[in-house]
Design a protein around this nucleic acid. Structure first.
Lengths: 126, 126, 126, 126
DNA sequence: GTGGTCTAGACCACA
DNA sequence: GTGGTCTAGACCACT
């Protein structure tokens, strides 16, 4: 499980960490119950501030992706991750919306977009 | 063409304006050559500062969505909007990626996600 | 002598008119003593405001490119156009400077730039 | 790296800043990876508003001349600056064109112009 | 009246 | 402390 940060991206670092760990879980590279590196070690590994990693971990906890134990540190949630709520679905659609608008404006057909989406899907799952 | 802003949202106002105008173009509510409201009038209509609208308009100009004429104001580009470049596609995929990771983590199947995407697509195009 | 205006350029229209007439003179399409269209007719030909053409003509007069006669209208200066002053040369160099900086930054060699410049020169003179 | 602004000039201040930093990079006074002053400190140094500097920095970012890191500020792009595109070359030629027209009208020979251009080139590179 | 530029001053997210 | 965003209000060039 390697994190690749882009420090000049406009995406905040803590968000990049969040996304990549979520992707690791989606890929099943990170399995339920598996421990994540400690805040300190991860921070020093990727060369960012403790707070930054902490913020990502807290968001993961809030989302039910991980559990934080005083002693044993942070582990991927051994229980199933909470299923998408109605709210989640709406948020995802809201984020999809400008991407799709852009795609339409730039001449991509619905099928072109589907290919794009399938490619990402495959890239994550294989 | 009505804009609905969410001032509480973490999405910057100028981005919301940008997205909604892009969507208007995708919907063909805004047709090629059609004038957009002037910076000042739109700003006062939606109750934000003129610079905020200006920033959105400038981004639309950069993206080739609109043309800015010094005197006559801003119009939807009468020429076709530049087709998606390889870079565009990669950026869209990069933005799709965390959405898809999240969807997978939350138990959505590839087909569930497709339904989501199709729903947005239909909502925009009809 | 046809003028081609780009209404969405950031270059003011009067400047475009100015440039193109200067280029016409440089090309010798417009010969010394030759009449230019009247402000009114040119304005209506190219579909711009009288003032806009007027401003261009006034700048041409100031630069010694044309003479304005009450009766006979505007003609290309039958006398030689004033030679470049030291001030002119400095201004030209000042305008050249950012172009050259950009060229260097983008990896163009001095010879590449010369080719560019020669190409424009040839395009004008032939 | 000193910036010299001409507040009387018709060239916008942000453009002057842009040009001079581009020239600094061309001169290699500003080396790849080298930090630029922060928006605020440069603004107060040269006595202009922070937004003016910000606009210049953003244009430099767009052009690939610098990288903006949210925390650590702005640095000269450590990677090579994007090579000139066909579009760049055309734009440079378009800007060269009125200069050359003027030079011809004012009696400069092609070689005179070359001397001018070489002088600027040497002034930048030495 | 249009957009372009600039100023002054504020709050926020990020690290 | 950094850049990002937003506001309010001003002047200017262009047409």
């Amino acid at each position: 499980m390697y994190l690749q940060l882009n420090l000049q991206s406009e995406v905040p670092i803590y968000t990049q960490i969040l996304h990549q760990i979520m992707e690791g879980i989606a890929r099943k590279e990170l399995k339920p119950g598996e421990p994540l590196p400690s805040v300190r070690s991860l921070a020093s590994d990727i060369g960012v501030n403790l707070h930054t990693v902490n913020k990502a971990y807290n968001l993961l906890k809030q989302g039910g992706y991980v559990q934080v134990h005083r002693k044993s540190g942070v582990i991927v949630n051994p229980d199933p991750i909470p299923a998408a709520t109605e709210e989640d679905l709406e948020r995802i659609q809201a984020e999809l919306r400008p991407l799709i608008s852009e795609a339409i404006c730039k001449g991509l057909s619905e099928d072109d977009f589907e290919k794009l989406y399938r490619a990402v899907y495959r890239d994550i799952l294989n």
